[in-house]
Amino acid sequence: MSRAMEGVRRVNINGATRNLLVGCAYVALLATLLWLAQSTLNNYYLRILAVIGINIILTVSLNLTNGFAGDFSLGIAAFMSIGAYTAALLSLPVAMKTASFPGLPAWLQTTSIPFLPATIVGGAMAAAAAVVVGVPVLRLRGHYLAVATLGLMVIVRVIANNWQDVTRGARGINGIPPLSNIWWAFGWAALTIYVVWMVVHSPYGRAMIAIREDWLAAQARGVNVLRTRLLAFVLSAFFAGVAGSLYAHLITAITPSSFSFVITFNIVVMLVVGGMGSITGSVIGAVLLTLLPEGLRQVETALAAGGTPLYGLSQIVIALLAALVMIFRRQGLLGGREIRLPGMTER
């Protein structure tokens, strides 16, 4: 009896330490993999990897609203756009600002801050926009919410197109310092996964899932429905803004049309194919649907060189894949389950 008690206590103490150790081990593993990639792969593969990292951030954060809280939001391109523009305006060298942005407020024209704070501010601006928009918009549910968030995308685009002094309108911002790399992309991706995982396994996360399953019942049990949904919405927007900043500093040129419905569509497909309500599913969806079009494009290029140009093949295959997943595996590849890595405790 006493030995059994001792055993339980030992496991508990070791459990906390072990969690920390396991966490450190995974960070070290990720760093090693990134270092390996950095030292062996050429710029092309590194760029694709960076895109994968950005797509993981977007998909995992979208999962919070669409998968866990059950709100079908399509505003991701809008939040990316806000994050991208904010971060780009902050990180552009002062000399370039004075040349290209004569109409900027003086304080902004004479400041240029490093990538990390610029990205955080970009995310924060997106989150702030989500708070402002969220309160009225989250009164809606289902496809009403989807259409309202789509409207948000149009509004942001119109503002970006017309606020000439700050966004340079349709000409967009170019010459953004190329600071994004796999370290930033996967560092932020790891943070996103960690935060979303923690939230989902906290009382807030349980409240989100309860709302998704039956919001009336959740409300009756004392869950503050609006506040919980807003939390998911704002957190998701923050990471979308971060991803926007990473995107801007990867592509180095952004225009209002960079953040169109196409991006939203791609991310939603990654989410749905991976399985809504599964974080690991989102990661798999993002990896798969970034690599697949790239791989298929190689086939297109090779076919064209061989005399049979079949450009557009990759888009058709992706769309077909999405349709097939919906027909045969509506819950997505992982269907709301998680793949647990060894050493990770059930929370």
């Binding site: 710029n43 092309y44 760029r47 694709i48 895109v51 995107y247 990867l250 592509i251 040129a253 952004i254 960079s258 196409v262 079009p293 790239e294 494009r297 297109e300 290029t301 064209a304 060189a305 140009p309 450009y311 557009g312 888009q315």
Partner: peptide, 19 residues
């Protein structure tokens, strides 16, 4: 030898294709 890659009228795809 012309190597033709589709930029898909998309900025991300265009930059990947360039690299």
């Amino acid at each position: 030898e012309v190597i033709a890659i589709d930029g898909k009228s998309d900025q991300t795809a265009t930059t990947s294709a360039t690299t």
